[in-house]
């Protein structure tokens, strides 16, 4: 931990970055994001199994972007990111939301995080994204910290659930998702917490004409959740934040995961894994599969 603090302090003292976006401990089993602009404040920074937030979400916030300009320092922002959060940063760079040169990525050798605050760190309470994680070492970073540790083993129950849904007949599937989405209260926490939901104005906020009904009845909820999932298909990096924050416990990442699997099957593409390959929905290939069309 001292290394992280030392590094962050150095960055701020030298004026290389305008702010460090990191985590601080609030209680034994809970951390929260913190945006640090003064070198002495860096002592609050931590990194451990309870650093659940995907801080990449802050990089697209106009207010945070302004931080550098306001203090009359450089524009660069430093961010502490888990290897999976680096995927989100890569996806944002790919979609031209941020500039690689303006981001200083402090990443870690990660051995998994808990599924939610307050749980002990072990195989049973491992976050579902960590079960299938292949990048314990970040793909891109400016500073790598932390030691390599073994990730606890756990069963991939999310994939089992997807398979289970796929075995259902269509009307049962529809009924399943209808009842799941019915719980939605439209707080849009899933949208707020997603690094890739960066639209200045979301399609649900456009009400003339009203494509997605703003009311939180079954039809409005269904439309919102389907369109949310569609807008993230081929783009979702699988950080699972939407799942964690949903107050109604809707299995949102189930659909995201399914679409990620489809993207991989159709185009051998996983979002946020490479700075070189163009984004999936922002590009095309003349030789793409044409089976769907008569």
């Amino acid at each position: 931990m001292n290394e992280l603090i030392k590094h962050a302090k150095e960055l701020l003292e030298k004026g290389e970055v305008a702010a460090v976006i990191g985590y601080r401990q609030v209680s034994e089993k809970r951390t929260k994001p913190v945006i640090i602009t003064e070198p002495e404040e860096t002592r609050a920074l931590v990194f451990n199994e309870y650093c659940l937030n995907n801080l990449a979400v802050y990089l697209t916030k106009a207010r945070i972007k302004l931080l550098g300009r306001k203090n009359n320092k450089s524009f660069k922002l430093a961010i502490t990111a888990k290897p999976c959060d680096v995927h989100s940063i890569v996806a944002l760079i790919q979609e031209n939301q941020i500039d690689r040169d303006k981001i200083h990525i402090i990443s870690f050798n990660c051995h998994g995080v808990v599924k939610d605050f307050g749980f002990d760190f072990n195989g049973d309470n491992l976050s579902s994204k960590c079960i299938t994680c292949e990048t314990h070492k970040p793909l891109y970073y400016d500073k790598l910290l932390g030691e390599v540790k073994e990730t606890p083993q756990a069963r991939d129950s999310a994939l089992e659930r997807i398979k289970e849904i796929e075995r259902m007949p269509h009307n049962e599937r529809f009924e399943f998702f209808r009842s799941e989405f019915d719980k939605c209260i439209k707080c849009y926490a899933c949208r707020a917490v997603c690094p890739l939901c960066y639209c200045q104005r979301c399609i649900t906020d456009k009400t003339i004409p009203c494509w997605i009904e703003t009311s939180s009845h079954q039809r409005g909820n269904f439309a919102w959740n389907v369109i949310r999932a569609f807008h993230l298909s081929g783009r979702c990096t699988g950080c699972g934040e939407c799942d964690r924050v949903c107050p109604a416990d809707i299995p949102l990442s189930l659909i995201n995961r399914k679409m990620t699997i489809e993207a991989n099957n159709l185009f051998s593409f996983v979002s946020g894994r490479s700075l070189e390959t163009p984004t999936l929905v922002g590009s095309f290939n003349e030789k793409d599969n044409d089976e769907l069309f008569m």
Partner: peptide
Amino acid sequence: GNLCLSCAQCAFVCSVCHCFDITDE
């Protein structure tokens, strides 16, 4: 303000928050 992500989770789970919106369908 910098930290908050502008969702309404806090208002919607609250037992006394009461703001509402009127819309025609």
